[in-house]
């Protein structure tokens, strides 16, 4: 079986995998990073979104072997210790999650969205989250959270 090596949440990892192994299954089953979820099989729902080399992708639609040498960030790698990333904190503050299943993908997408558009309008947030389906919240509070999260990320960037 081929061996794949990558950096996940800052840690160098490797594993023997079948070529057909999806990145999400490598993360969940081999690395035990179960925060990344699988909610569909047609690349629509976005529960599996992680960052690969700095941009958001659907880890159910990428072979693990294709991530050879890549820098991968999952939801587990977003917070600094117990201190939530500003986007995570904003989701909590604005009740942008209920059952929590879509949440990791939603947060990872939101962070990527704000990276390319630091001050998104409500409409841009709604369109920017097109690839993430939530069945619980009706998106109302997610939109509020992303708006607040963007503000906090910008403030953090200015400070930092």
């Amino acid at each position: 079986m081929p061996t794949v090596r990558m950096t996940v949440n800052g840690r160098a990892v490797s594993g023997e995998i079948e070529a057909r192994t999806l990145l999400v299954h490598f993360l969940r089953n081999q690395l035990g990073l179960t925060g990344t979820h699988v909610g569909c099989d047609t690349s629509q729902c976005g529960a599996c979104v992680v960052h690969v080399d700095g941009t958001s992708i659907k880890s159910c639609t990428l072979l693990a072997i294709q991530a050879e040498g890549a820098e991968v960030t999952t939801i587990e790698g977003l917070a600094t210790g117990d201190e939530l990333h500003p986007m995570q904190a904003a989701f909590r503050e604005h009740h942008g999650l209920q059952c929590g299943f879509c949440t990791p993908g939603m947060v990872m997408s939101a962070v990527d969205l704000v990276k390319t558009n630091p001050d998104p309008s409500e409409q841009q947030i709604r369109e920017g989250l097109e690839g993430n389906i939530c069945r619980c919240t009706g998106y109302h509070n997610i939109v509020k959270a992303v708006k607040a999260g963007a503000k906090a990320m910008n403030a953090g960037a200015m400070k930092g």
Partner: peptide, 9 residues
């Protein structure tokens, strides 16, 4: 095209 993640890949 598609969504943000599709466009990234």
């Amino acid at each position: 095209i598609g969504d943000r993640q599709v466009r990234n890949r």
